[in-house]
Write a protein that binds this DNA or RNA. Structure first.
Lengths: 334, 334
DNA sequence: CTGTTAGCGCCTTCAG
DNA sequence: CTGAAGGCGCTAACAG
């Protein structure tokens, strides 16, 4: 089933078939009709490998991300896919399991079969990033801003988000908070930490505890967080927060009366359980959409867009409250 | 950067390069060394489009699934990806949003750029399935067994899983249960319903309520489920169950004292909240692994494997208990 | 506006 | 065991 078969069926040359199918040039309507009919009758579909070879492009964009099981990414992916489809492209996604070495391989692999790449929350260091970008393949960074890198970037404004959290806690009277830190190699985690450190200027004492990005991590870290003596537990994301929350409850700790807990990302995990998490929201849909658009622009017009930051919004819900004054738990809810 | 460039660098013909790279034929070790070195120095990577065109295959398998946001699928995907990588293939996934029409398009699209397809929980009807399989592309069905279809299938044994649930409830004294039904077009849902109906032979009265597959669906259906007067709420999956559970608690209903709730799939959502869900477990990893292997077999040897059913296991946890005898809630926990 | 011609980069017969 | 030659299906530059 080739373009030639369609050609004979429509009594035209293969080129003409190609032209009507791609709209590359004006074709006599009569011939075009014959072609369309033949295509329909034969159920012809262009061979993508042949097209790719001839055109030098695949009609596919690649997405690399650390973990598909994180509810964060399906939302982003849906938006990216929508944009890609609107531009007539497929999407190929690969997950790295948070491993920088794997990331390198995946990107190399994706470059072989995609016209452009979206690197979501890459964990690799700046040098590796520079190396990869140097290959000249269009790629845009998502949730990672790397200064001086020849690739457009778009990210949620983690720093501002965490600042909102700190402000909220400060106003509730919290002066000592503990932060359950995300993956060490995560730039996004670094931004959160920076914002926390900045909050110390306002008289807030911050303890950083290595933790992780999953519910399990939060669950395991909760006791240590409690022991730190902080009145509020700030977390890398909602998953960690929920894990911690569960553990605290099991230990009979009253949240938010005895201790406040804050999430990050608004994964809307709050369907579960009675209390819903105070957190900051991420515009995941917009993030995916704009990232897709930036990549498309980069691929088609070589447009190197300015780095963009997307704002987060504070969502005060049930897990934060005024700090308890002494040893007794008599604080009021926020 | 073509195979010819490598050839000149290694002072051999392109054919020789191809042969050492693919292990297609015996090559003088000295030449092979030169080739490897040249490849390394030039950083050469075969053009996939050219390979695909010449070989007539893409080195890619396609996966179609209804919804990436369902935590069920990332687990399956990880296993599929692992198998695919072990066989030197990439994975391309597309989600249909539970829409049979979209499914048709996606499969058609995937057939154009993949050597084989995994159709996960397809919602399309049998006729459409037959049509698609008729195209002669290797495909295996996951979580859908369709009799007389010329495609291998593998599925979790939903019927047996639901039977375990019914038995468990019956032994706790439940005689009236309500089922929050999944997507109408879901074969897996049909299997669950069949098992429920079979349970009626044991004196169990079953009411089926249309619901859906998401937490939101469960949340919204909970009041209706309660009104049905049943003593136990059986659900399409853990997501629905959690949604219902949350709503019941908000209404002050004591689970499991006043009503029992059972999930399905063991999505391990139980990190959240105080009570963990009684449910049946799905071997998602094994499902993905075996599906991948079946597809590989089908692609390489045309092996048409027997349909396989994977067993589920009952996990009795905190949300089921003995039926309350009258109006008072004095049941004990299971 | 249409058909003919020459590759895209690789694999795979076929000679040697 | 190696090189040369043809073709995979399509597009694009070239004549007509």
């Amino acid at each position: 089933m080739t373009i030639t078969d369609v050609g004979v069926a429509a009594r035209v040359s293969p080129s003409t078939v190609s032209r009507v199918l791609n709209g590359t040039a004006k074709v006599d309507p009569a011939l075009a009709d014959r072609v369309h009919q033949a295509v329909r009758e034969l159920g012809y579909r262009p061979n993508l490998a042949a097209q790719g070879l001839a055109r030098g492009e695949w009609g596919t964009i690649g997405v690399m991300l650390p973990d598909l099981a994180n509810p964060y990414f399906p939302d982003v992916l849906k938006a990216v896919t929508a944009v890609a489809r609107a531009n007539g492209r497929r999407v190929m996604v690969m997950e790295s399991d948070e491993d920088p070495t794997v990331e390198q391989d995946l990107v190399t692999e994706l470059m072989r079969c995609c016209d452009g790449l979206l690197l979501c929350s890459p964990r690799m260091d700046r040098a590796q990033l520079v190396d990869l970008v140097g290959h000249g393949h269009p790629m845009v960074l998502v949730n990672r801003i790397a200064p001086g890198l020849a690739a457009p970037s778009i990210s949620v404004d983690f720093y501002a988000g965490m600042t909102l959290i700190c402000g909220h806690l400060a106003q509730l009277g919290h002066r000592e908070v503990v932060y359950l830190s995300g993956p060490e190699a995560s730039w996004a985690n670094g931004e959160r930490v920076r914002a926390l450190n900045a909050a110390e200027a306002f008289g807030m004492k911050v303890t950083v505890l290595p933790c992780g990005s999953t519910t399990r991590d939060g669950n395991e870290a909760a006791p240590r967080a409690l022991e730190s003596g902080a009145t509020a537990i700030v977390t890398y994301n909602d998953l960690v927060a929920q894990g911690a929350l569960t553990r605290l409850r099991q230990q009979g700790v009253d949240v938010p009366k005895e201790v406040s807990v804050v999430g990050f990302d608004d994964l809307s995990l709050d369907w579960f359980g009675l209390a819903t998490l105070t957190t900051v929201s991420t515009p995941r849909d917009e993030l995916g959409r704009r990232a897709g658009e930036m990549l498309e622009l980069l691929m088609t017009e070589g447009h190197d867009t300015e780095p963009r930051y997307l704002p987060m919004a504070l969502l005060v819900r049930d897990t934060t409250g005024t700090v308890r004054t002494t040893a007794s738990a008599r604080g009021a809810q926020g």
